[in-house]
Amino acid sequence: MKRALGLLLGLLVLVGVAVGYSTFAADREDDSAVERRPLDLAAGGQLVFVDTARKGGHRTVAATAIDPAGNTGPARTDSGLRCERFAVGAATGVCLQTRGGPLPGTDALIVDPAMNVRRRIELAGTPSRARVSASGRMVSWTVFVTGESYNKTGFSTWTGILDTRTDYTLINIEAIPLTIDGKRYRSADVNYWGVTFAADDNRFYATVSTKGRTYLVEGDYANWEAHTVRENLECPSLSPDGTRIAFKKRSGPTTWRLHVLDLATMRETPLAERESIDDQAAWLDDHTVMYGRGRDVYATPADGSGTPRLLAAKAASPTVLR
């Protein structure tokens, strides 16, 4: 009797696993090369991204192998963690997850190398951008928030910063003292988005918008101040060597062209990608920029040469783990 009961329980477990995987596979447009298991954010040789292949708009964090030349493999591992945006730095990850309920909301999940959630930060609005510093200490997010009375478009951005070493959290950095053209600036319509961190975990860059104009700002976390560097730069991404910034530059009312700014010379270089890109780019290496285009991730040389190439199909929000 006990043996029969054990066999029955084992059969039920196998059936449950099969049904679970079938449901997971059926929720995907193409599951032929996907394995579902926990990711290891401490392991190198991976491109980690948000998988856009699942039906119904459900997105999960996945990874695929990437070699030193920047070539990815066909197989991918799906963690099952639902995220709209994801970023990694030194095995610390941040996942922006839409929160259900009568009002739109976002949870910023801080995850460890095994993708275990270590902290949950409740935010208003909907997910937009996410970044982690190279050391894993500093985390940032941007969400779209509706209902700000001063904003004629009906929405604004809230950008926050978390210091994981001290747990000090700023839900919205818009109160940081701002200097524009050498003068202290104050306005109710100031919005920040798209933070990127320098290697010292103190200096950071971001976009600020006010009075219909956008600027690249450089921030000092320790002294809590920021000043504008250049106009018409959005969604900055600092190169691994800290010398250049990839960004999107407005080319029309609703279009943007990817560029790279040399911080020493302030020279802007338009990249070979001619499609309009509404994304915060990332760096594949010191010579290559990667970004979301449609539902895929592309890469192109940072010096403006060459042509864009498909890096990962049905993917978004990429981070390379070397």
Rank of each mutant, 00 (worst) to 15 (best):
M1K: 07
M1T: 11
R3A: 13
R3W: 14
G10C: 13
G10K: 02
L11W: 09
V15P: 05
V19T: 13
T23Q: 11
P38A: 06
A43C: 05
F49V: 03
A53Q: 08
K55C: 03
R59S: 12
D67Y: 04
D67A: 12
P68L: 07
G70H: 04
L81R: 13
R82M: 08
R85W: 06
A87S: 14
A90G: 03
V94D: 01
P104C: 09
D107S: 11
L109R: 10
D112F: 09
N116H: 14
R120P: 02
P127C: 13
A130E: 01
S133N: 03
S135A: 08
G136E: 00
S140Q: 10
K152A: 15
S156P: 03
W158R: 15
G160R: 02
G160P: 02
I161E: 04
Y168G: 09
Y168M: 14
A188R: 12
D189N: 15
N191K: 08
Y192T: 06
A199E: 09
D201I: 08
N202L: 09
T207N: 05
V208Q: 13
T210R: 10
K211F: 12
R213S: 14
E218C: 07
G219M: 09
N223A: 15
L233Q: 06
L238I: 11
L238Y: 03
L238E: 02
P240K: 11
G252T: 04
H259S: 09
D262R: 06
P270V: 04
E275D: 12
Q280P: 01
A282L: 00
L284A: 05
H287M: 05
H287Y: 07
T300H: 02
A302S: 14
G304Q: 07
G306A: 10
R309M: 10
V320D: 01
